[in-house]
Every structure is written in C-alpha cells, then in structure tokens.
Simulated scan of single mutants.
Amino acid sequence: MMKSNLLLAAAIVFTGSALADEAWTSQIGDVVYERDLPTGEAVLSYPASDTKARGLAYIEGLAQTYEGRGAFEGVWIEDDLPPADACNVSISDPETGAARNNWGRLELVFTEPDFPGGWVAIRGDCFNQPDSYLVGKPIVAEDAQ
C-alpha cells in the first residue's frame, strides 16, 4: 500500500512538471511557460524590450497541451507605452481586464510535436501582420548542468 501511494505521488509530480519546468532559450533570453488560464490560454513570459519587466504571451489552445503540438495563435502584452508610441487601440489584459496599449498578434509553431519541443514565433505590433521572428530551443535538465 505504501509503495503504491509513493508511485501515485511520483506520477502526479512528474505529470505536472512539464508546465513548471518548460522553458526555452531564444535570441532575446529565456522564455518561460508560466501558467494555464481556465479559458484555455497558456501564459508564457519573455524579456521585454527596453525594460527589466517581462512581457506576457497568451497562447490560445496551448494550455495543458504537451503532445501533438502544432500551430497556435495569441497575443503578446508588454508595459504600456506613452500615447505617441502606443497602439491606436487598447485591448483588455486577459487576466486583469485592464486596458493595455502595448500589444500585438503572435503566431507560434512548434518544431517538434511533443514536450520538450522547440518553436518558431512571429509577432507583430498592434493589428500589424506578424513580421518579427523568434526561435525557441527547449532548455532541458542536461542543458542546465
């Protein structure tokens, strides 16, 4: 009985580890899978440009998907900009509902279908067509040593 309880506990910890341990290295720094939202978006954080804060990417349909990954869409949000530099239209932050003026569209395509896998992302500012590329390579335990 004790052995089966230990195995069950280990299985629960292991299956939950993909979310907590999933991170990628990229040209701009580490991208981290932060959390899942109840609405089905996965929240990824990344080093934001020109600031010490981290930007957030909200990827639709990625929450709790660790196998059979393909192409996903979403939005990115960073700290608000002065009105002259901001998007003409603000969007609501998916978590807080606050109006945000520094955002854009994002397309994320995994290069391997299962965890851990790399990806290529393209993003654009505001409603503009995505045009900035980012490549994410998974950080795995042997890389950290």
Rank of each mutant, 00 (worst) to 15 (best):
A141M: 05
A144Y: 10
P94E: 07
N101F: 03
L37K: 12
A48Y: 01
A144W: 01
S17P: 10
A71R: 15
V31K: 00
D50P: 05
W24E: 05
D36Y: 10
E41G: 03
Q64H: 13
F127M: 04
N101W: 02
N5I: 13
V31S: 01
P47G: 01
E95P: 00
T25G: 04
I139L: 02
G68I: 08
L81P: 03
I139M: 04
A42E: 10
S49D: 02
G68R: 14
T96A: 13
L8E: 09
N102D: 00
T39M: 07
A144R: 15
L81G: 07
A53W: 04
K137I: 09
A48K: 03
D36A: 11
E73C: 04
A11L: 13
E34L: 14
D21C: 13
V13Y: 07
F115R: 15
Y58G: 02
T96L: 14
D143V: 10
L7G: 05
E67W: 11
K137Y: 09
Q64E: 15
A20V: 14
E142R: 15
D85S: 07
F110D: 00
R35W: 01
R123S: 04
G104V: 01
K3F: 08
S92W: 02
N102I: 13
P38Q: 10
C126G: 06
V120A: 01
L106I: 11
L106N: 09
T25Q: 02
A11M: 10
S4T: 05
M1Q: 07
P47H: 01
A99N: 13
P113T: 05
A144G: 04
N88K: 14
V43G: 06
S17W: 08
L106G: 09
G104Q: 05
W76F: 12
E107A: 10
S4F: 12
R54V: 01
P138W: 10
P94L: 11
L108C: 09
R54A: 12
T25W: 06
S4H: 09
E78Q: 14
T51D: 06
F72D: 08
T25P: 01
F110I: 11
K3H: 11
